[in-house]
């Protein structure tokens, strides 16, 4: 069975890039167009790993992490934060909310897969 990735990003370009890289690498790719959409889809998709943007309308990335990790959903799956900011405080904030790791935009396919491997063990 393929590893299922739920990608949450409001940018169509980033979603396309993720889809291309992940499908190429053999992941099963699902996407949501903003934070609220992502949290809503979580139950249906039941992903093995979540990749989320930070700056999004209708619930930002921190909100996504908090809701997924919150008592209602109580998700244990790895959550990778996708953001152009690699500033330490943003990472610290994401981590405090329960993020597993991060991917810095712009990303190349290799670093994306490498990040996924470190949190899911899966290369695909």
């Amino acid at each position: 069975m393929k590893t299922k990735v739920l990608a949450i990003d409001d940018s169509r370009t980033i979603r396309n890039l993720l889809a291309a890289a992940l499908e190429e690498a053999g992941f099963e790719y699902h996407c949501a167009v903003d934070g609220r959409d992502g949290v809503d889809m979580y139950g249906d998709v039941a992903p093995d790993v979540v990749i989320t943007d930070i700056n999004m309308p209708n619930l930002d990335g921190f909100g996504v992490i908090e809701e997924l990790r919150g008592t209602d959903i109580n998700s244990k799956v790895p959550i990778l934060v996708l953001t152009t900011e690699s500033a330490p405080e943003l990472k610290a904030r994401a981590r405090a909310a329960g993020a597993t790791g991060w991917i810095t935009k712009p990303f190349d396919d290799q670093s994306l897969i490498f990040a996924l491997k470190r949190v899911t063990g899966a290369a695909a």
Binding site: S11, T13, I14, N55, T84, K105, P106, F107
Partner: peptide
């Protein structure tokens, strides 16, 4: 203000991916 920030941010993010 948030909406503008996100728009510019998304342009930056995408542009970064294409160098």
């Amino acid at each position: 203000v948030n909406a503008i920030f996100r728009a510019v941010h998304s342009i930056k993010g995408g542009a970064g991916a294409f160098g």
